[in-house]
């Protein structure tokens, strides 16, 4: 499955870009995360949530979307 992934905040600093297209095999969001962790090992040390097609989802949600986003919490004010 071809998925477009958006990276926000310091996640984009780990991946070195704000957006990319990836080919993912697997059924669940967790499968995508495994693929991302092996591509970007530093991601394992970051806190973030995943949104699929503009909706926040959990790791065991089925991959269905064309568009995913990795969102870290921001604390600045």
């Amino acid at each position: 499955m071809t998925i477009n992934i958006k990276y926000f905040g310091l996640i984009a600093e780990v991946t070195q870009h704000e957006e990319e297209t990836m080919n993912v095999s697997g059924r669940f969001i967790s499968d995508l995360l495994e693929a991302l962790y092996s591509k970007y090992p530093d991601l394992k040390n970051k806190d973030f949530q995943v949104a699929q097609n503009q909706e926040l989802v959990s790791e065991n949600t089925e991959l269905s979307g064309q568009e995913l986003a990795l969102l870290p919490p921001f604390s600045g004010g």
Binding site: N45, K46, Q49, P73, S75, G77
Partner: peptide, 25 residues
């Protein structure tokens, strides 16, 4: 419901440590 717990890992440092574009806030 969005972020259940405060980050335990490499937390994002605050503006005083990393800088921020003045107009953004």
């Amino acid at each position: 419901c969005l972020f259940p717990n405060p980050p335990q890992k490499d937390t994002a440092p605050n503006c005083s440590e990393i800088g921020v574009l003045g107009v953004l806030p």
